[in-house]
Computed example of a mutant assay.
Amino acid sequence: MLLVVLLLVTSCGVAAEETVTVLGPWDPGGKEGKAFLATLDRFTRDTGIEVRYRGVRTVNAILRLSDLAGSAPDVAVLSSPAELARYARAGRLARLPRDPGVQERQYLALDDPARPYGVVVKTDLKSLVWYDRTVGTAAAAPFTSFADLVERGQQVRARGGVVPWCIGVKSGAESGWPGTDWIEDILLHLYGADAYERWARGDLAWTSAEVRGAWLAWHRLLETSGMLTQSRTMLLTAWNEHPPTPCAMEHQASFLRPQGWGVHPFPGDNSAVSVDVAGLFHDRPAARRLLAFLASRQGQQEWTGRAGGGFFSPRTDLDRAAAYRGDDIGLLVANRLAGSSRCLDGSDFMPQAVGTAFATAVLEFLADPRAEALDGILGRVEEVRRSVPPADWLRDACS
Rank of each mutant, 00 (worst) to 15 (best):
T180L: 02
G24A: 11
H251C: 12
A94N: 02
G326M: 06
S171D: 15
K34M: 08
D276K: 10
R115Y: 03
D111R: 14
A195C: 11
S79Q: 13
G376I: 03
G308Q: 03
L96K: 01
G213P: 11
L63F: 05
R336I: 07
A278L: 08
D74Y: 10
V129N: 09
G172E: 06
T144F: 05
R370C: 07
W239V: 11
A173M: 12
V102S: 01
L216N: 06
F143T: 02
D124L: 11
T237K: 04
L256K: 09
Q259D: 15
G262T: 02
A357H: 04
A141T: 08
G355M: 10
S340A: 15
R198D: 14
Q252W: 08
R320D: 13
T123W: 07
A334T: 06
S271H: 07
F349W: 15
G136I: 02
G168A: 05
L332G: 12
G118Y: 05
E18V: 13
V163W: 03
L331I: 07
R198Y: 12
A140E: 15
L337M: 12
W218D: 02
E50N: 11
P81V: 06
A287E: 10
R342K: 13
A85K: 10
G279D: 15
D148E: 12
P25N: 06
L221A: 14
T10S: 14
V75N: 09
R86D: 15
S175A: 03
S175I: 03
L221T: 03
A138P: 13
L68M: 15
D181F: 10
Q298L: 11
G24T: 07
H251P: 07
P81E: 14
A217D: 06
G308A: 09
E174I: 08
R57G: 12
A139T: 00
L363D: 06
R92A: 07
V354Q: 05
E197S: 15
N240I: 13
G379T: 10
L37Y: 09
P97L: 04
R212K: 14
A15E: 14
E372D: 15
R325P: 02
A69V: 10
L216Y: 04
R45A: 11
L188G: 09
W26A: 10
A214S: 10
L93D: 03
K170M: 11
M227A: 05
G305T: 05
R42V: 12
G153P: 03
D283C: 03
G172I: 07
L149G: 01
V51A: 09
W26L: 06
R370P: 00
V273P: 02
A323R: 03
S254G: 08
A61K: 13
A367L: 13
L2I: 10
S313I: 01
S313E: 06
P100C: 02
S127E: 03
C247Y: 01
G376A: 07
A200T: 04
L7K: 13
R201V: 04
D276L: 13
A205M: 05
A272M: 14
T21K: 02
I62K: 09
V362R: 01
G176P: 00
L235H: 09
G379V: 05
A373M: 07
S399P: 13
G310W: 10
A322F: 09
T39I: 04
S225K: 00
R297L: 09
E223L: 04
V5P: 00
G48N: 13
G326K: 02
D396Q: 11
G24F: 04
I377Q: 00
A61V: 13
R105C: 08
G226W: 00
G153H: 03
E223W: 03
E83M: 08
